[in-house]
Design a binder for these strands. Structure first.
Lengths: 208, 208, 208, 208
DNA sequence: AATGAATGAGCTTTCATTCAT
DNA sequence: GATGAATGAAAGCTCATTCAT
C-alpha cells in the first residue's frame, strides 16, 4: 500500500522499487522462517497482491534465484579478494569454500533446492550452481597443481560437500563445535597431507 | 468375522496384525515414493482408516521411527558381525559407517527428519539416532586408540556426516562417481594418515 | 453392515445428514445464483470446510449430478404418471418434454454442462442425460407409431432442443410470451400435421 | 510513416491502425480458441499492452461487438442479396435464418453473450441484436403475408431459436446429423404447412 | 480399538480491470 | 493515446490431523 511518498507514484521506477521491496521482504522472511513459508504470506508482508509477486517472480525458485543473484556480486567480490590477497592455494580454496558455505546457509532450507538444481537443469538455480562449481574447480585445480589438494577430488564433489555441510548446519548448531568439526572433516578430506602428522592443525578444533 | 471369539483377545490380535500390516505397507510406500507421500494414501493402501493409522503412529515421524526400529536388529547384527569379524579398527569403523549410510538411504528424504531429530529431543527418532551415535563412538574410540582415526573427530560428527552424505546422494546419483567421491572425502577426513602418501588408496577412485 | 441399528453407528447418519444439508444448501445456492458460484462459497454457506464438500462431491459436476439425481425420482414419477394417465401419445410426448424442460431450467446455467455431458462421456451427468434421451425416445416412438410425430425426428434431437429452449429461457423471461413461443415452435417442429391447417392451435399462443 | 506530419494526425493514424490490428488479432483468437480466452493474451498477441486494448474496447463485450460490427456489412449484403434474388418469401426467410445462424456460430461461445444482450439493454451487443431481430421480422412478415409462415410466430422468437440452435451446435457436432435435425425442427416449427404432408422435405433428413 | 468424516488453513495460479506515468 | 505494473478476489483442490461415533 501507499508509502509516505507524496503525489509521485508508480512508474518503471516503481516497478524496480516494488521488486526491490519484495526482495527485501522475502530476504527477511526466508532468513527468519526458512524458505518454506507461503508465497502469499510474503506478498502480504510486502503489501502487494499475490499477482504482483507472481508477476515479478513466477515461482518460489525464481524468487530464490533472484535473492541469491543479489548476493552473487558479494560472492564474486569474495572470489576476487581471495584471488588477489591469498597466495597460498590451499588457504585460497579453504576460504572460497567457507564463502560458499556461508552463502548456502543464508536461509534455512536453502541447500535442498540447490541440491535439486544440480540434477534438474530446468531450475533457475541450476546456472548459479554451475557457475560456482566452475569457480570451485579453478581454486581446486590451483591447489592440486601445488600439491595441496588431493588429485582425485573434483570441484563438483566439493560443492556438493559444502551444500551437505550447510544442510547439516541446522542440526549442528545445537552443539557449537559440530559445524567446525564437519568443515574440518571435509577439509582434511580434500587436503593433501603435509609432512607433519596432523595436516591442518590450525582448523582442527582443539578439544580436551 | 470371528463372532464367538473373546472380544479382547481378538481385538488384540487384530491390532497387532493391523500394526504389522501398516508397517509393511508403509515400508513399501516410503521405499517407492519417498517419505513425503500423504498419510492418507498409506492408510488407504493399508486398507485402514487414517484414524487407525494415527492411533498406531501419532504422526509421520512416529511411523518412520517404527519403520527404522524394524531395521534396528539388522543394524545390530551388522554391528556384532563387524565387531567379531573385523579385527582392524579402521576397517571396522569404515564398515559401520557404510552400514549407517545404507540405513539412512533406505527412503528418499529420510536424512531430513533424522537430522531434525538430532536437535529436537522430542522426536521419536531422537533415541534411535542417539543409539547409533553411541555405537559410532565405540567404533571411533577403538580406531582412535589404534591411531587409525584422528583424535579430534567425534562420533556425532561422523554420524552427521553420514546423514549429510546420504542427503547428497540423490543429487549425486545423476553423476555416478560422486557418491563414492563424497564418501572418500569423508573417510579421508576422519582417517589418520598412514605412512603412505595416499592414506586410503583402496577407496579413492582412481581417475586419470 | 447394520443399517437400522440404533446407537451403534451414528456416523453414517451424520454423514448422510451432512450430505443432505450440503445438497439443500447447494440447491438453494444454485437456484438463486446460478451454477457458476464458487464451491467454497457453498461450503461456507453450508457451514462446512471445503474439504468436506469435496469429500462428498469431488467436483462441481458431481455436486450437480447429485442435485439432479435428487430430482430424478420426481421425473420418474412424472414419466410414470404420464404413461398411465395420458393415452394420447402426442400429448404424452408433449408433457414429457415439458417435464424435461422444467428439469433443465432448475438452475440458471444448467443447460450448459448438460450439453457438454452429451459429448463428454466422462461427465457424471452423461449417464443421466442418456437415460432421459432413452425415455424421450420411448415417448417419441409411441407418437411416431401413432403418426402424431414426424418420423424423421429422433429422441436425441428433441432432448437437445429441450436443452436449447431451456438455455434460451433466461433471455426469454424478460419477455413473457417468448418461452411459450419457443416451446410451441419446437412442438410444431416435431408434431406431424393434423388434418386442420394449424396443427396445434391449442398450444399456439393466441395473440392479437 | 510520415514523421514530419502533425502529431495529431500521426497519432490518429496510429490509433486507427492499432484498433484495426487488435480487431484482426481478436478475430483470429476468438475464432480459434473461443470467446473465453484471456484479454491479456489477446493484447499480448496484438503486441499492445492490456491498457491499450481496454482503451479501445472497455470490456470483452465491446470487443465482441466491434468484431460483429465488422461482419455487419457482410450480413447486410446477404440481406440485400436475398431480398433481390429470392422471390419466394419462405425460402428468403429460411436463407436469412441460415445467414444468422452462420453469424452466431462464428466463435465458439458466442451465443451466450448474444442471448444475454437480449435482456440487458446496457450491452453493446444489444443494438446489434435488435437490428437483426428487426430484419428477421421483415422477412417473417413477408412470409406470413404469403401464408408460408405461421402467423403466431415473431421475429424475436426466431432470432432466439437461431441462437439456441447455434448454442446446441457444439454438442451436436459429435453426432453429424443433429445440427441439421435441429434446424429442420425449428424450420418446420415456423413454417406453415403446405398441401403436401411433409412441408419441407428438402431439409428434413431422409432416414430409414 | 477402529473408523472415516470433518476440518480449514494452505497452496499456486489466473485474469479482468484500473490507473499512474 | 499508450503503456504495462498493480491489483486482489477467486478459483479448485490437498492433506495432516482431530474427534465424534
Amino acid at each position: 500500500m501507499g508509502e509516505a511518498a507524496p503525489g509521485e507514484r508508480r512508474q518503471r521506477t516503481d516497478k524496480q522499487r516494488n521488486r526491490t521491496h519484495i526482495l527485501e521482504v522475502a530476504q527477511r522472511f526466508f532468513a527468519e522462517q526458512g524458505i518454506s513459508g507461503s508465497m502469499d504470506a510474503i506478498a502480504k508482508q510486502a503489501g502487494v497482491g499475490p499477482g504482483t509477486l507472481y508477476r515479478h517472480f513466477p515461482n518460489r525458485e525464481a524468487l530464490l534465484a533472484a535473492l541469491l543473484q543479489a548476493r552473487e556480486e558479494e560472492l564474486e567480490a569474495r572470489r576476487v579478494a581471495i584471488k588477489h590477497e591469498v597466495t597460498d592455494s590451499r588457504t585460497a580454496l579453504a576460504q572460497w569454500l567457507q564463502a560458499l558455505s556461508e552463502w548456502a546457509t543464508a536461509f534455512d532450507g536453502l541447500p535442498e533446492p540447490l541440491r535439486a538444481a544440480l540434477t534438474e537443469n530446468t531450475s533457475p538455480l541450476a546456472l548459479t550452481c554451475q557457475g560456482y562449481i566452475t569457480i570451485t574447480d579453478e581454486f581446486l585445480h590451483a591447489a592440486q597443481r601445488d600439491g595441496s589438494a588431493k588429485p582425485w577430488v573434483r570441484g563438483r564433489d566439493l560443492f556438493l560437500s559444502t551444500l551437505a555441510t550447510a544442510w547439516a548446519r541446522s542440526a549442528a548448531l545445537a552443539d557449537e563445535s559440530s559445524p567446525d568439526a564437519l568443515s574440518a572433516l571435509v577439509r582434511s578430506g580434500w587436503e593433501a597431507p603435509t609432512k607433519e602428522a596432523t595436516p591442518h592443525s590450525d582448523t582442527s578444533p582443539s578439544r580436551p
